[in-house]
Design a protein around this nucleic acid. Structure first.
Lengths: 247, 247
DNA sequence: GCTAGACATTGACGCAGCGTCAACCGCAAG
DNA sequence: CTTGCGGTTGACGCTGCGTCAATGTCTAGC
């Protein structure tokens, strides 16, 4: 009636190591421990093990299995929750596969060694329409040439600067100070300086800077760089104050 | 131009702990380590980190990413292999979800607390047709009543005995001895004894035992219990010899 | 009665990828 | 001088066991 650990292992297809592990964590205890610590399993222990293995095949974690077996959780309930988790994993995988495939296509198409558009910085092509309608095709072309002319390293540097500027704006807006305070105005100065570094834009013209501030608020794509609409509003106000005073 | 670990962390969205980990394993090293072991990252390091993060989002493991970045692996090749792995994961998940759902249905339908059919043992309902056509509806009904009348514990015990018998047959067949050797004949005796424990079957009748042997060979569902067709053939031969001599 | 061998036991490390203390140091502000 | 922020190097924890390693026990054969 009783079986040793090795016999149980053969019967159920698990290793003896697994059975010892289950004993350690209290999931399936042997029915009796004889001389020398030898584990013996009776039919009841086998029933329990059998239920464990069934739930394990379904992908449940050992703690969840323990909860079900000890009656702390309703089995149907546990399985429903588990199914939900499995489904989320599945959609995650789907998205990942799609990403991998589009990346493969891009690489096979000879695209840039995927260094672009990782930071939230100035992603050029995304704003093509915006630039062309506001400042003309010529402006976009110059800007585009400038962008493509840079090396990966230079682009990374530029993007990092852009991201840092955005991060600083967010931190400042969140600190609660006024848009016309010194710190915010210093940021506005950096912002204008940064703008001047982009060829093909009007540069340090007063109405351009204030207009840009409005765009940050109106366009969620830009607003996201500054912590959403509120952050963008802070940037707009600070830029307006700065432009009035210095441009 | 250079940034501290915390700045890089904010820029890229990873934690400084992760950056230190990447340094430890040599995946992304800081461009310079200043006084007090302070890490500094320049634009080149950012480019590398950026590529790491892109590949990580696709689900690649860090060693695989390192291989790609160090030019030891073609990136397209690595991604193709990775896609294959992702697809396998996906089908595995699909199957698991299907299993979970059928289990949920079974539980909601008030089925037995899923103790059945885990071992390779005698799974009753699977062989209903087989039993009814060979030995009549009455035989199946008696057998069925006997099976349902048992407790989980008893059923587990029975299944374990059945599985053990199958395992012993496989081991004996694999050992290379002849079907009429003593050890095989002892197993045959146990087999007949085991058969006698199933109500509704003809029992220890000579032609029943030999016919059963043939069925084991012919039906892959049974053969699987004895190690496939070869193992089943060994069982059949041993049973025939035993039946001729003792029944 | 001894020994070999098969199987048992209890540690303990390793795996992936960091999160999370812990303990300590350095620098700037109040 | 203290406080606080940010930097450093360990080292453990998590999931579910696989995989030694060192040692004990039971059975079989001489």
């Amino acid at each position: 009636m009783e079986r040793t650990i090795q016999e149980v292992a053969r019967l159920t297809g698990v290793t003896s190591r697994t059975l010892r592990h289950y004993d350690d964590i209290g999931l399936v205890r042997p029915s009796r421990v004889g001389a020398g610590g030898i584990r013996h399993y009776d039919a009841d222990a086998l029933v329990r093990l059998q239920r464990v293995l069934l739930l394990r095949e379904l992908g449940l974690g050992l703690p969840a299995i323990a909860a079900v077996l000890d009656g702390q959780t309703d089995d149907v309930h546990a399985l429903l929750a588990h199914r939900e988790w499995l489904r989320q994993e599945q959609t995650r995988l789907e998205r990942q596969i799609a990403s991998v495939e589009s990346t493969i296509e891009a690489l096979e198409g000879g695209e840039e060694p995927m260094a672009e558009d990782m930071f939230d910085g100035f992603d050029h092509t995304r704003y093509r329409e915006e630039v062309e309608t506001r400042w003309g095709k010529d402006a976009y072309a110059r800007s585009d040439a400038w962008w493509r002319g840079m090396s990966d390293t230079e682009r990374a540097e530029w993007q990092a600067r852009t991201a840092q500027l955005g991060a600083d704006w967010q931190a400042t807006a969140a600190s609660g100070i006024a848009p016309d305070a010194g710190e915010a105005q210093e940021l506005a100065r950096r912002h204008v300086e940064w703008l001047a570094g982009i060829p093909g834009t009007p540069g340090v013209v007063k109405e351009y800077v204030t207009g840009l501030g409005e765009m940050y608020v109106a366009d969620p794509r830009f607003a996201a760089n500054y912590g959403g609409p509120e952050g963008a509003a802070f940037v707009r106000d600070a830029l307006r104050v700065y432009a009035e005073a210095h441009l």
